[in-house]
């Protein structure tokens, strides 16, 4: 008597997705990330966050600040 194991294709979809997420996250974090700097603009009290964003380099941040001011 032959037994044939049936694999749920949805489980295969899930496992592929998880594997893909792991590979892509490793690639994403090992190489150069896009916009590696995170800037936070605090209020005078130093606690309230007024704005948050991502930026490629510090010079770009300074330029942005100048424009905003």
């Amino acid at each position: 008597m032959k037994y044939q194991m049936q694999i749920n294709p949805l489980i295969l979809v899930m496992l592929t997705t998880i594997l893909l997420a792991v590979i892509l996250t490793i690639i994403d974090t090992s190489g150069q990330r896009k916009q590696p700097y995170i800037w936070i603009h605090y209020d005078k009290d130093g606690k309230t966050v007024l704005g948050v964003g991502k930026i490629n380099n510090i010079i770009e941040l300074q330029e942005n600040l100048k424009c905003k001011e």
């Binding site: 949805l10 979809v13 899930m14 997705t17 998880i18 997420a21 792991v22 892509l24 996250t25």
Partner: peptide, 11 residues
């Protein structure tokens, strides 16, 4: 939903 939840949860 499997793709979206599986991907974001792992990430």
């Amino acid at each position: 939903l499997i793709i979206i939840f599986g991907y974001t949860a792992t990430n």
